[in-house]
Amino acid sequence: MRVTLGGHHVPGFDAAHREQTGRYPGPAAAWQPVHTVYVPADRFDRHTVASWGQTALGLLEGHLPGDAETAEVFGLPAGLAADVRGRVARKLAAEPVEDLRIDFEDGYGVRPGAEEDAHAERAAEAVAAMRADGTLPRRWGLRVKSFADGDPGRSLRTLDGFLTGVTGRAGGLPDGFTITFPKVLMEAYLRQFTAFLPSLEDGLGLARGTLRFEMQVEAPQTVMFLLRSPDLVPSLGGRLAAAHFGVFDYTAACGLPPAEQRLDHPVCDHAREVMRTALAGTGVELSDGSLAASPASDATEDVHALWRAHAAMTRHSLRHGFYQGWDMHPSHLVSRYAAVYAFHLADRDAHAGRVRAWEARRDAGGGVMDEPATVKTLLAALARARDALGEPTPG
């Protein structure tokens, strides 16, 4: 090929490309749970996960006895309802909780120091026992108190005591651990928390980089510094694993009336879109928030009403590309898994067909002409479906 210029070197490109790959490594390759279950530390013990599963399974069997009820409550075709209900029942029996967080913050409250120390110690004992029993979820951890409360020493002491107790009893730190760091009103709090972790790792004999955390986005101030701080993730040295949206603190901070403090409010959609934009390509996972409600009574109509509301919120998150959320009550496990399974099963075959059509260099059904970026999204959706449904990767 003839060219006009002999050399095509771009000055500064190598440095810019290194910066790009460092700042935007792409999505995390690891499995991501579909939810995080929060349990107040004073109510947590080694049987909590099993108890949640048994309670949820009892609710399923008592209030959703067959496929017809499943179809009606969750708005599913009969064939899909049968598949979804069977999957939910098996999941609740085998692995009711994918990600567990022992809560020392809002769900726990402010206690005397000696009382919180005792609960951290008991929580560590329970985690070590669950690890020995094989019942510790694939992901687990604790939520510490916020630095915004004005007492970072209390937050760090609980983390230190808890991890000292776990590693001492379990002979190391079980896989899947993470820390939830709430109410990040100041960007400086993230750097201060990050700076503490290497010393704790050294003291516990853990490899550097073992302790990672997820920040909670619960205030307009946090949204603002996400927008103005493009170097935030690199500056935390790989410690930031995820960002979780906190719907009730956020909507309260925005001045919304109580009836409008809901996950699908437009101000929440805006905050989540900022999270997505600010953290795109960084490998930081995103999680949505929760529905702070349980069945109003044991009556079937009240249980069904809760499931419909929770499933609707879960579907809203899924449609907006947030594939993880919080669950706060055993009843949520039923609607969480039902909504997630239905979402992935509904389009999985169509997605696979479009990928096959693209690979064969032909149009998909209905005249669809997919672009490479769309095919990449389809492949990601298929991988996410396999993970959520607990199915093996082909080949």
Rank of each mutant, 00 (worst) to 15 (best):
F177M: 06
G203C: 06
R143Y: 03
G171H: 05
D160T: 15
H244M: 14
S235R: 12
A207Q: 11
V166Q: 08
F193Q: 01
F245C: 03
G237M: 04
D264E: 15
R228M: 12
M186Y: 15
G168P: 02
R228F: 09
G172F: 03
L226G: 00
P234T: 08
L156P: 11
P230V: 13
G203T: 12
F193Y: 09
A188S: 14
T158K: 03
H244Y: 05
P234W: 06
P258Y: 13
A148E: 12
G150M: 11
D264K: 14
P230K: 08
L190A: 03
Q261G: 09
T178G: 08
Q216P: 00
L227Y: 00
A259I: 13
G246P: 03
G209C: 02
S235I: 12
L204Q: 02
A242I: 05
T158P: 13
F245L: 07
S229E: 07
K145G: 13
G205D: 08
F248D: 14
D149C: 04
F248V: 14
F196C: 11
G165W: 02
R262V: 15
T222K: 01
F225W: 08
F193R: 01
T210M: 05
A207D: 11
P182M: 04
D151P: 02
F213N: 01
G171R: 05
L240M: 12
L204M: 07
A219W: 05
E218A: 00
A243V: 04
T164P: 04
G255A: 12
L263E: 15
G176W: 08
P182D: 05
A243G: 00
G203W: 07
R208K: 09
P257W: 07
L227T: 11
A242C: 06
G209F: 05
F213M: 02
G171D: 02
L159I: 04
G205T: 10
G209M: 06
R212Q: 07
V184T: 13
K145F: 12
G161L: 14
G165R: 02
F193W: 06
